[in-house]
């Protein structure tokens, strides 16, 4: 059975598109037929992060408006042959998205794919609402920083009230997962950044993974390759583990730097 998963955050710049690209590439490498859709109409960027920006002919909006067939707009990834990208329009605005259109495209995709990843735009407007509306699960991307955590809390509120599953009733609600990104174990250990436990205590949803702040993320976006596929890095490993958990595997969470530093390391660490 296919699953629609929205990658959302409220706040911009926390890593939604990076995570959407990494998660979809990770699911595809695990053998699932996967498609990732860009819902950020007018500001498309998923195509660049996936490295297919020069292959876009038709887009999501063309399909919704009946100007192109779905399989004309789907771009097959060059690295993984069971991974597809559905880019959005760069010239239209968010009003070009209609609820009926989104539903129709998602239903068509459900026939073909195991996983449908919806890369939400920032904010809480139409694009973000439609990206989450038909979701079965949600990955809430959060940085350990006050404004991001607050916005994630707001998104959790919307996920549990303004979605098809919420409107249908009590059982079978959207399953939300926390993906903590740009985490710096050292700063967290020093008390300069909220810890994983702090954020979990506040948002109270299951933890999918912790992605450490890593220069590998920018390097991957520079060359248009999902972090998971680009080079061996801590961020790539953390994404791989998060994807395995999303896929139902039980992998223990290892979080670096979560221990309070001992007396000796504090004593010597400070003089350095």
């Amino acid at each position: 059975m296919s699953k629609v998963i929205v990658v959302t955050s409220g706040k911009g710049g926390v890593g939604k598109t990076t995570s959407s690209a990494a998660i979809s590439a990770g699911l595809a490498s695990r053998g699932h037929r996967t498609v990732v859709i860009d819902f950020d109409v007018g500001l498309r960027n998923l195509d660049m992060i996936m490295g297919c920006e020069r292959r876009v002919v038709f887009d999501f909006i063309n399909v919704i408006q009946g100007d192109a067939k779905l399989n004309q707009a789907l771009i097959r990834d060059r690295r993984l042959d069971n991974l597809y990208v559905l880019p959005t329009s760069q010239t239209r605005d968010k009003d070009a998205l209609t609820q009926e259109g989104v539903e129709k495209v998602l239903n068509e995709l459900r026939e073909e794919f195991d996983y449908i990843i919806c890369d939400s735009p920032a904010g809480i407007e139409r694009g973000a609402q439609l990206a989450m509306y038909y979701a079965d699960e949600a990955v809430v991307v959060t940085n350990p920083e006050v404004s991001s955590v607050r916005d994630s809390d707001r998104m959790l509120g919307l996920l549990s009230s303004k979605t098809a599953r919420a409107e249908r009733g009590e059982e079978d609600q959207i399953k939300s997962h926390l993906l903590l990104t740009r985490f710096d174990p050292k700063r967290s250990g020093d008390g300069e950044m909220m810890s994983v436990e702090d954020v979990l205590e506040i948002l109270a949803i299951p933890l999918l993974g912790v992605i450490p702040e890593s220069p590998a993320v920018l390097r991957a976006s520079n060359v248009g390759v999902p972090v998971i596929l680009n080079e061996k890095s801590r961020a790539a490993t953390a994404y791989e583990e998060a994807v395995a958990r999303l896929d139902g595997e039980d992998i223990p969470m290892k979080i670096e730097g979560e221990k309070v530093p001992g007396l000796m390391s504090r004593l010597f660490g400070r003089s350095a």
């Binding site: 008390g191 300069e192 950044m193 810890s195 702090d198």
Partner: peptide, 18 residues
């Protein structure tokens, strides 16, 4: 620790907003 302040401010604010 500033992280403790961040957590406390969020807890108070979100309790209010929720």
């Amino acid at each position: 620790k500033s992280s403790a302040q961040a957590k406390e401010r969020l807890q108070i604010l979100l309790a209010h907003e929720r």
